[in-house]
């Protein structure tokens, strides 16, 4: 199963989900598609990780879910950022930036 991979990606996946919801509320499939698009198809989100992550973020209170109607008139569950979710997104973006800069320094240093 994708167990180990998901665990490694956990922190990043949360960040990606929060980021994809920054503009508008979306349903689960939409989030997966959006992450694909935004990464220019370099990242695919495993469903096995996506839904547990969504439920975890909801438990944390960073996103909230509401039933709505999708583009093609289907009943769907839409996830939206909450106020604390936005704060969390900013924080995670900053810490990611720091981390990637640091890693770049290390990689370029030699």
């Amino acid at each position: 199963m994708a167990n180990n991979k998901a665990d490694l990606l956990q922190g990043t996946l949360d960040l990606l989900i929060l980021k994809s919801l920054q503009l508008e509320p979306m349903h689960g499939f939409g989030i997966a598609v959006r992450i694909g698009q935004m990464s220019q198809d370099m990242l695919t989100v495993e469903q096995g990780s996506l839904y547990p992550a969504l439920y975890r973020l909801e438990e944390q209170g960073w996103i909230k879910a509401e039933w709505g109607v999708s583009d093609n008139n289907r009943k769907a569950k839409f996830y939206a950022l909450t106020a604390s979710g936005r704060k969390q997104l900013t924080a995670e973006e900053q810490s990611w930036a720091k981390l990637s800069t640091a890693i770049n320094f290390v990689l370029n240093g030699t």
Binding site: H27, G28, F29, A32, Y51, S70, R74, K75, K77
Partner: peptide
């Protein structure tokens, strides 16, 4: 959850 995943 079942409904959501079916939609997906």
């Amino acid at each position: 959850m079942a409904e959501e995943m079916r939609l997906h």
